[in-house]
Computed example of a mutant assay.
Amino acid sequence: MLSVAEHFLEQQVYPMALDDMINNLKKISTPVRTNNRDMRLNSINSSITTKAISWWSPLACSIALDAVKTVQFEEDDQKEVDIKKYAKVGKIPGGIIEDSCVLCGVVINKDVTHSRIQCYIKNPHIVLLDSSLEYKKGESQTDIEIIEEEGFTQILQIEEEYIQQFCEDIIHMKPNVVITEKGISDLAQHSLTQANITATLRVWKTYNNRITRACGAWIVSRPEELREDDVGTRAGLLEIKKIGD
């Protein structure tokens, strides 16, 4: 109908049939109640049945509806829809189409620092850092002259004490999980593992920001400045598992 009407619109003919079209559309249309999930799924299915994914239409419709609910945020009688802030499409090689789902949380494609850490933690307490947990290297080239054998041992001891102090500041907050955007030394990994803390390193800044909104934590630059309010406690579950390859 629109393609036929376009020819007359180009000739500047007044669209007199518009009112009749609207009235007919109202007669044949069906009002959709937003609180009726089955009715909304039927509406989505009408557009999916003509696509290649129609074979998995029940799954695709459910994912589409759940994704729309995820990006809608209501506060103080105001509705906000933001597809960049509240949702992200993640593609993981391997598996089957039926493995696809809408996850109400944050997915990070990172491995843990130690094989003996916890992989399933309910109600975790999370600390987010944008600093490294390793000995700080000099910005310019530094030469150290060691005259006696004890000098080398003393340098290693200073480095260990420096890292150990970082770890003690973190352990004092009693977190279950530590996520940093930088590196973690072997000594720091050992100390955190001994305290039963799961650690993940070199996480992108964008992911750290998403985790902040998910668990209520604050990103801290210096471990010695950690406070109880900086620890995120709103997350319901932290799970580490392998998907595909």
Rank of each mutant, 00 (worst) to 15 (best):
M1W: 06
M1S: 15
M1L: 10
M1F: 07
V4W: 04
E6W: 05
F8M: 09
F8E: 13
E10T: 10
Q12P: 00
Y14C: 03
D19M: 07
D19K: 12
N23F: 04
K26V: 10
K27V: 13
T30H: 12
R37E: 14
D38H: 10
R40S: 15
S43T: 10
I48Q: 03
I48A: 05
T49E: 15
K51L: 15
S54M: 04
S54D: 08
W55P: 00
L59Y: 04
A60S: 10
C61D: 10
S62K: 14
S62I: 03
L65Q: 07
D66T: 05
V68C: 14
K69R: 09
K69H: 11
Q72K: 14
F73W: 05
E75H: 12
E75C: 11
D77N: 14
Q78T: 13
D82A: 08
K84P: 00
Y86R: 13
K91V: 15
I96H: 05
I96R: 08
I97V: 15
I97G: 01
C101H: 03
C104I: 00
V106I: 14
K110L: 00
T113M: 08
H114K: 07
H114P: 00
S115Y: 02
S115P: 06
R116A: 13
Q118L: 07
C119A: 01
P124W: 02
P124G: 01
L128E: 04
S131M: 02
S131W: 00
S132V: 01
L133P: 04
Y135C: 08
K136Y: 01
K136A: 14
K137E: 14
E139R: 05
E145N: 12
I147D: 05
I147N: 09
E148C: 11
E149Q: 12
T153S: 14
E160L: 04
I163D: 00
Q164T: 13
E168P: 02
E168W: 01
I171D: 04
I171Y: 02
K174C: 11
V177T: 04
V178F: 02
I179K: 00
G183F: 02
G183D: 14
A195Q: 01
T200I: 14
W204V: 03
K205W: 02
Y207P: 00
C215G: 03
A217N: 04
A217S: 09
V220N: 05
S221Y: 06
E224S: 15
E225N: 14
R227Q: 13
V231H: 02
G232D: 01
T233C: 10
A235E: 02
L237K: 08
I240Q: 06
K241R: 11
K242A: 06
K242H: 09
